[in-house]
Design a protein around this nucleic acid. Structure first.
Length: 585
RNA sequence: GCGCCUGUAGCUCAACGGAUAGAGCACCGACCUUCUAAGUCGGGGGUUGCAGGUUCGAUUCCUGCCAGGCGCGCCA
């Protein structure tokens, strides 16, 4: 039985509660602010109301009625709280046993039961750079995908490439005017971006450019073969570039079908909206009024512009309907920044369509826009974007320099490694710094790009976690050299645990809860925060105690198991964040 | 004007409605003959934007202000 359930049962017995109230008690349990005050706490405020007595009196009474057992050492009333001290050895046995039983899956749960979650993320625009700003959707989405998988959902990773729209009019306009085949072959995306920026800048002084671009896009949508061939070529070149970046980030998708792929569905869907009388004509355009659905003042959603071209919203509706038919999702999540109104319109419009057509649907409930903060200083149009590839390169190079400095200062601690191994480590450390930085704050906070904070390797950073993992591995290398257990498997537990050992056990106990918070709040930051707490607890332990030399054999055995458990959980958490665990740094 | 989001230490950020609001960076001071010092320990630093309300209890929930960001039918 899990620790909290055991404690809830003891409290329930002391209160004379029926078993069905135990989950309530379990939920009410909190952690005291410090180890000195106990390991778990039960606040008595709610009871005070029911029993019409002072919380402190109830706490005192309750504490006196709890008897020590195999897991609970003692209960002490502290003001309105009943503070429970656990038998450290018994509790450690339980936590470490659970981890050793299945290290890879510890903390996971089959919450999803195989239900499908479609996760739409990354979605870069063709002919626009994959810059640092795109990392947010890509990284948050990939993290959520791993987290949902870990919790038993079937996740469909969808990269809805931005391969359609007036922006292509701009690129094609620029290509026809200045196009240079040689430059295109040499620098593909970079060159396409230059073309786009150049055309866009021209349109700011000459409104006719925008008109021409719009017209070129209309021709594309109407199937002009020359324009379509150009578009096809641009798309392929861009996608090839994106794939290199994804590979480097270790991220893959189940589908790369973009807006263009739903093109052939759009007309039929618009027709459905019209036939169901959900869409109405307005000022020459076709719109769906949606202000009456979600209780918000939303502008009407436009399906077709007055010039006859379909809109982004129309394609999103068509794509969502197609997605629903194909995957039968239980949740449909778009990891897209700052498009709350747009998605509210789309979900509301789909809800109205389903209602008008008389089929069961809960579009506004099953669809969700997971938004995130703005990355400052990354406008493509202003040409100030920083390419993600460049950030990755710089991160890798800095990681390499840092290691060189450290190994020069302390050669004994840093073994000579082959060049390719050094390359691999530098790449991983740099990548870790980047990926962790992105989730080191809650997703809704805005981020200001700044080389020095992104490429920080000390403190609350990805490399700090990797370093901690490498230290754990170092302990096992030493153990192996002395012929000791190298896996950290089950070992006898000493009668007493030091504070640092116990604190680490308590942190390990909380991994599953952190994963579930991350899933529920669509918030990978929960994982990064948890891992930082874990690494800090480990480093505090590491600094205070030796595992191998100078410890009793019993202690060494237990500590190896503890370190093994911590290593398994740290690696597991890093995996959820897409960060590689390193044995050496 | 309307909608959404955000205001917490000098900076970047935490805190299931719970105890003395915590980390990192920066600054000051300690700690490597030891399993990697990318680390650890200690120190200074706060009217949680303002004012109300709900509650035994509010950084958290509600309302109104103030400030900032983003968006608002023919960009995507």
């Amino acid at each position: 039985m899990p620790i909290t359930a055991h404690v809830a049962r003891a409290l329930g017995a002391a209160l004379g509660y029926a078993p069905e109230h135990l989950p309530e008690i379990e939920r009410a349990l909190t952690e005291p602010p410090s180890l000195a005050l106990g390991d778990l706490a039960f606040p008595c405020f709610q009871l005070a109301r029911q029993l019409r007595a002072a919380p402190a009196k109830i706490a005192a009474d309750l504490a006196s009625r709890i008897t020590a057992d195999t897991l609970i050492e003692r209960a002490v009333a502290q003001g309105p709280y009943v503070n429970l001290y656990l038998d450290r050895a018994a509790a450690a046995r339980q936590v470490l046993g659970a981890i050793a039983g299945d290290p890879e899956r510890y903390g996971s749960r089959n919450l999803g039961g195989g239900q499908v979650i479609v996760l739409d993320f990354s979605a870069p625009n063709i002919a626009k750079p994959f810059h640092f700003g795109h990392l947010r959707s890509t990284n948050i989405g990939a993290d959520l995908a791993r987290i949902f998988s870990f919790l038993g959902y079937r996740v469909v990773r969808k990269n809805y490439i931005g391969d359609w729209g007036t922006q292509f009019g701009f690129v094609i306009y620029a290509w026809q005017k200045w196009g240079d085949l040689h430059a295109l072959r040499q620098r593909a995306i970079e060159y396409l971006v230059e073309l786009y920026v150049r055309a866009y800048k021209e349109s700011e002084t000459d409104p006719g450019v925008r008109e021409q671009a719009r017209h070129l896009f209309l021709r594309l949508e109407q199937g002009d073969p020359d324009i379509a061939a150009l578009w096809q070529q641009f798309r392929e070149l861009s996608l090839a570039g994106f794939m290199r970046t994804y590979e480097r980030l270790g991220i893959g998708f189940d589908s790369y079908e973009g807006e263009a792929s739903v093109n052939h569905l759009v007309e039929a869907v618009i027709e459905r909206f019209r036939r169901a009388s959900v869409a109405v004509e307005s000022e020459g355009a076709l719109v769906v009024p949606v202000s009456d659905v979600l209780g918000r003042e939303l502008a009407p959603m436009m399906l077709r512009k007055s010039d006859g071209a379909s809109t982004y919203a129309a394609r999103d509706c068509a794509e969502a309907l197609d997605r629903f038919e194909r995957y039968g999702f239980s949740a449909n999540i778009y990891v897209v920044s700052r498009q709350e109104d747009h998605f509210a319109q789309v979900f509301a419009a789909l809800g109205k369509l389903a209602e008008a057509e008389g089929w069961e649907s809960r579009w506004p409930q099953t669809c969700e826009n997971v938004s995130f903060g703005y990355v400052r200083g990354m406008s493509t149009r202003k040409g100030e974007a920083v390419w993600l590839e460049d950030v990755l390169d710089e991160a890798r190079d800095r990681a390499r320099r840092v290691r060189e400095e450290k190994s020069a200062a302390n050669p004994r601690a840093f073994p000579e490694l082959p060049e390719e191994e050094l390359e691999r480590i530098s790449e991983s450390v740099g990548q870790a710094a980047l990926l962790y930085f992105d989730v080191s704050s809650r997703r809704m906070s805005d981020i200001t790009f700044d080389w020095d904070s992104v490429l920080q390797f000390e403190g609350n950073t990805g490399p700090y976690l990797q370093y901690c993992h490498a230290r754990m591995c170092g302990i096992f290398r030493k153990a192996a050299a002395q012929g000791l257990a190298t896996t950290g498997g089950p070992a006898p537990t000493p009668a007493t645990l030091a504070d640092e050992e116990w604190a680490l056990v308590l942190v390990l106990r909380g991994f599953g809860a952190a994963v579930e918070r991350a899933a529920e709040g669509r918030e990978p930051h929960e994982i990064s925060q948890y891992l930082h707490t874990l690494a800090s607890a480990f480093n505090a332990f590491y600094n205070r105690h030796t595992v191998i030399d100078g410890a009793e054999p019993l202690t060494t055995g237990f500590r190896l198991e503890l370190v093994g458990a911590a290593q398994a959980v740290l690696a597991s958490g890093l995996r959820l964040l897409g960060i590689r665990s390193l044995e050496l740094m």
